[in-house]
Design a protein around this nucleic acid. Structure first.
Lengths: 179, 179
DNA sequence: TGGCGAACGTTTGTTACGCGAACGAATGTA
DNA sequence: TACATTCGTTCGCGTAACAAACGTTCGCCA
């Protein structure tokens, strides 16, 4: 017998050790690792006076071109309530421009500036470094593996909200955290 | 060339689509998936009147035996500030017993009850189902792959806080989220 | 033409979580 | 005997995702 389920012996060590059941649960691994990852990324970006939403917005502008705040919201997953603040921060730093749309006076057209593009390049490189740190113990092949697995899981859960109760379709999970 | 970095064409579709750069980032995949996972687990547990910390505490008691609140804190990663509330909830439901330690009157000895053990079995099975849903798109082999990769990453980041600045050693990340 | 629902940007608030500070009581240690 | 440390507990902060509501503007259609 190599495994023990009870704690009749070895009374000392169960003082600090986390139960295997916990440790193995994918949900817990995800939470734990994401916590580390978030902390790493947040701190890393903070050191260059940025936050992850900055990157998201800039990348979106670069890849899909200018758009209204609502559009950016959908592309990045940032709530439109919070988009306001993010864009303020970006505008303060001259990374984007917010101009009223002449064709639709409800909207602002958000455009990335030259400095914004430059900034994006910098952030991309910062994030590359951070991910190197994050994925340090993995070989390149394993990193791809991981990304692939995560992508498949995320894709799966993003289009099938839940076949539990036949819902007409609650707007969309939009991606992001639980409240 | 098959890839395009600019958004000169295809002006419509960039309305909803998330930039690839974002989508590929491991940190973002982790955040996104963990959000889904957390929501799934929280809701699933809520349906049986439980929360994930309940499971953590019960599992810890079952595997490593009774312990003080501080001990449980260390084993589960729950802050001792929050442990109070969790144990109250568990005690209300007669899943644990909180008795003053005669050998050390500062401590409470927390013991799992019969109902607690029974409850743990139930929660284990609920969590199994939830994880089946969470990992649905993956084959058993891939699930193991994923768990293995995540475990290695988490282990790595839990013992090497950061070789950035030579710190004497800030208590310990204890595992969990950034503030 | 007028009316109405929907989308837009914005402000304000809610909820949950991780974490820290501090405190009285009890303990161990010099 | 003094002092530092640990324990359980309370209170509160800071951040994050998210909801509600409001005034403005637009599209649509009778």
């Amino acid at each position: 017998m190599t495994s023990r389920a009870d704690a009749s012996d070895m009374p000392h060590d169960g003082e600090t050790k986390t139960p295997d059941r916990l440790r193995r649960r994918a949900s817990r691994l995800l939470s734990g690792l994401t916590a580390q990852s978030d902390r790493l990324v947040n701190e890393g970006l903070a050191e260059v006076d940025a936050r992850k939403w900055h990157y998201a917005v800039l990348a979106s502008l670069q890849e899909h071109g200018p758009g209204s705040q609502a559009t950016l919201s959908r592309r990045t997953g940032i709530y439109r309530s919070d988009m306001v603040g993010v864009l303020n921060e970006l505008a303060e730093r001259d990374l984007i421009e917010r101009t009223p749309d002449p064709d639709d006076r409800r909207r602002n057209v958000i455009t990335i500036t030259a400095r914004g593009r430059q900034r994006l390049r910098r952030l991309d490189q910062v994030l590359d470094d951070l991910h190197d740190e994050l994925l340090a113990p993995l070989t390149p092949a394993e990193r791809d593996q991981l990304v692939q697995l995560l992508t498949r899981l995320l894709d799966h859960h993003m289009r099938a909200p839940e076949p539990r109760s036949p819902n007409p379709r609650p707007p969309a999970p939009s991606m992001a955290g639980p409240r």
